[in-house]
C-alpha cells in the first residue's frame, strides 16, 4: 500500500492556471506530495511514449522547458516535434516559478494575442503557431502543474498520439477527466513522476511490471509493461 499523507501537511503555492485552493483533508499519494517539492532540473527534456490499452497513446516530456518545432534530421531538433510547416524551433514553453509562459522565435499567438517575447499561459489557452498549427493548452489537475497539449488542428508528431503531456512534476492517469490522461475504465489513479533522472510510477493498486508484482513505488525502465486489474500500459523512452 502506498504511503498516504494528508494534504493539509503540504506546503501550497499559488500558480498560474492552477488554483491553490486544495480541498482540505484530501488524501494524496505520497508521490504527489513529495513531487510538489521536487526540483525539476534543467537537464535536457526526457521524452517517453505511453501506449495505453483501450485508451490511446500519449507522448510524455519530462522537464521544465519544452521547445516546439518541426522535425529535423539533426540532433538539435526541438523537444516536441510536429509534422507541420513551422520552424525547427518555433516556440518554447517554460514552467518557472509556478507559472507557465511561452516564448516565441517565430509567429505565435496565444488565444489570439501575438507573442512578442514572452506571454503567460493559462489553462484553456489556444496556441497557434504560424497561423495554422493550433494546439490546446490545459492544466487539468489541481494537484499538478503538468500541462496537456491537445491537437486542435490536424498537426501531430510523426506517430499518431492522442496528446502530449508536459510533465513538470507528475502525470496522473486515472478514471477522472481532471487527470492528465483520462482512462475511464481504470479502477484508480496511477501517478508517474521523475526522480533522480528516472521515471517512476506509484499507485495504490496492485501492479505488475513485466509480470512481476511490485511495491507501491517503482522505477519504469524503457519498455516496461505495467499491468493491473483492468489496466495495462507500456512505457518507451524515446531518447
Amino acid at each position: 500500500m502506498p504511503q498516504f499523507i494528508k494534504h493539509s501537511n503540504l506546503r501550497t503555492r499559488s500558480r498560474v492556471g492552477v488554483p491553490s485552493a486544495w480541498a482540505p483533508g484530501r488524501i494524496l499519494p505520497a508521490a504527489v506530495a513529495t513531487l510538489r517539492d521536487l526540483v525539476v532540473s534543467n537537464s535536457p527534456v526526457k521524452s517517453y511514449i505511453m501506449w495505453i490499452d483501450g485508451v490511446g497513446a500519449w507522448q510524455l516530456y519530462a522537464g521544465s522547458s519544452f521547445s516546439i518545432g518541426a522535425p529535423t534530421f539533426e540532433s538539435s531538433s526541438a523537444d516536441v516535434t510536429l509534422l507541420a510547416n513551422i520552424s525547427r524551433r518555433h516556440a518554447t514553453l517554460h514552467y518557472e516559478s509556478d507559472h507557465w509562459r511561452v516564448t516565441a522565435d517565430h509567429l505565435t499567438t496565444v488565444s489570439g494575442r501575438t507573442v512578442d517575447s514572452a506571454v503567460g499561459l493559462r489553462s484553456g489557452d489556444q496556441l497557434c503557431l504560424a497561423d495554422r498549427v493550433k494546439l490546446g493548452f490545459r492544466v487539468p489537475s489541481k494537484l499538478s502543474s503538468s500541462a496537456v497539449i491537445d491537437f486542435e488542428s490536424n498537426h501531430r508528431p510523426a506517430h499518431t498520439v492522442d496528446g502530449i503531456i508536459l510533465m513538470v512534476d507528475h502525470c496522473l492517469l486515472g478514471p477522472r477527466c481532471d487527470q492528465h490522461i483520462c482512462c475511464p475504465d481504470w479502477p484508480d489513479i496511477v501517478v508517474l513522476y521523475v526522480q533522480h533522472g528516472s521515471l517512476y510510477c506509484r499507485s495504490s493498486l496492485p501492479l505488475n511490471v513485466d509480470g512481476k508484482l511490485v511495491s507501491a513505488s517503482f522505477p519504469l525502465k524503457h519498455g516496461a509493461v505495467v499491468d493491473g486489474e483492468g489496466l495495462r500500459f507500456r512505457i518507451e523512452e524515446i531518447r
Binding site: W51, I52, D53, G54, G56, A57, G223, V225, D227, R232, F233, R234
Partner: peptide
C-alpha cells in the same frame, strides 16, 4: 486483451497497444 504490447503475432507488425 489477448496480446501484450510488443507482441508480434503477425510477421512484420508489432502491436503497440490494444
Amino acid at each position: 486483451f489477448t496480446f501484450v504490447p510488443e507482441a508480434s503475432p503477425l510477421e512484420g507488425y508489432t502491436i503497440k497497444r490494444a
